[in-house]
Simulated scan of single mutants.
Amino acid sequence: MKIHRQAVVYFLIFSVVGFSARAQGKLVRFAQKVLNDTSSAATSKLLVFPTAGFAPETSLELGVRAFSLFYAKRDTVVNRLSEIVLYSFVTLKGQFGVLLENAAYTNKNTYFFLGRARYQQFPLLYYGIGPNTPSVNPALVNSSYFQIRQRILRKVIRNWYAGAEADFQTIQRVSFEFDEQHPPGYRLPLGGEGSTTVGLGAAVVYDDRKNVLNVRKGHFLETGLLWYRPGFGSDFSYQSVVLDGRLYRPLGQPNRVLALQLAGTFMTGAIPFNNLGLLGGESLMRGYYLGRYRDKSVLAGQAELRWLPFGFSKRWGGTLFAGLGSVAPAVRDFQLNQVRWAAGGGVRFLFFQKKDVFLRADLGVTREGTGFYVSLGEAF
């Protein structure tokens, strides 16, 4: 379905004109109810609200984000908080996408479902592959992209989980747009004409977190191995190892938390450009465009000091964070002078008081610029 820019503009105009005083009153009462949520922690919560954003490759972006927060069997003592997030958007350039993410636990935390599904017709900025790609004149990659990645894990003993993992990705109708006055210094990458990859593997997870959206104390460790083979339906043959370790510690007071993360992606084989490990985004190395750096191996770490909330407020808090990371074609090729830094801070607002879930707004700063992010729940 093709979305025309004029149709989006007309929709916005008629929406604003037709927004009656009565509708405004309902919106105000709804906002007051949400901001002063005093429902029981065991109550399932569904929140739907509009979002807006801007980026050079999309112009104005309008979307709707829905969060579902719940405890299995409404048991807040034994069971952990689960979340399902659905986000959809359109832009004035006729692009659109849908993203579904899940981190859900069954009763007694016996099973843990962790994954995502997304479809997008959305331009990507492609800077090239490796740690020394130039920050100017990236290619604009237009495509139709679809991914399903899911882990189905079962508790083995105490907080240890093990299970199967699958990853399906396809990117089609790919086109690279370059600045004709500044042609790139690289050839079209592997997978530049489109690709389909299917990976199957296994994952082992240690997780003793109680609230995945706002961890005040606990540990998380994930090791995942995936094999992509033509026999599975994949166009390319390669393998990947993903490591993610996180530590959370209170610092003297319950509202003050130190969060640490070390994450790595290590791949070997023939890997299409859109499947390579990425550095940047709203979770790790905030401030860098997601995919500003990409390669077969990615290693990054970050630390964050959180006040949730501040000592002088019941609803408002803040964070300070910093991270280091780099990419390389292989583990042996990492070099100290190619490490990139990112730092910043953010504000927090206690959105769900009983569930201890904050709305976050972060500003990340790098040597190449800044990035601004708004979401529900912490970055990691």
Rank of each mutant, 00 (worst) to 15 (best):
R246E: 00
Q172R: 14
P184M: 11
K73S: 12
V85Y: 06
S237Q: 13
S313D: 04
G277L: 00
E61P: 00
W227R: 13
Y105F: 09
I3Y: 15
T223Q: 14
F19A: 07
Q147R: 15
R360S: 12
T91R: 07
N36P: 00
G371D: 08
T76G: 09
S283T: 05
G311T: 05
V365S: 13
L225K: 14
E282D: 11
Y111A: 00
R149L: 06
S88H: 09
A361K: 02
L114I: 10
S40F: 01
L359H: 11
A104F: 07
W307L: 09
F96C: 06
L363W: 11
S375R: 15
V8M: 07
Q181D: 07
S195A: 13
R80Y: 01
A263L: 04
V331A: 06
S144R: 15
S375K: 15
F312A: 13
V9C: 07
L47F: 00
L46Y: 07
K73D: 11
P134D: 12
S313Q: 01
E378T: 12
E165V: 10
E222N: 14
A328K: 08
P250D: 02
A103Y: 13
S326N: 13
R367N: 07
F351Y: 08
E61W: 08
S135C: 05
K2P: 12
G301Q: 10
N337Q: 11
T58F: 06
G192N: 11
L46V: 06
T319N: 04
L278S: 04
L124K: 14
S313Y: 01
T133C: 06
A203L: 10
L221Y: 06
G130Y: 07
I171T: 10
I152T: 14
Q239S: 13
F312L: 05
F178I: 00
G245C: 04
G377D: 00
D333S: 13
Y10L: 09
P50F: 03
G63S: 12
L35S: 08
G345R: 05
N107S: 11
L251Q: 03
G18Y: 15
P272V: 03
D362S: 06
P131A: 07
P230T: 02
Y126D: 05
G192Y: 04
A270G: 11
V198H: 11
Y126E: 04
F380V: 02
F312V: 08
D295N: 10
N255H: 10
E180D: 05
H182N: 11
G94E: 06
F321Q: 09
I129A: 02
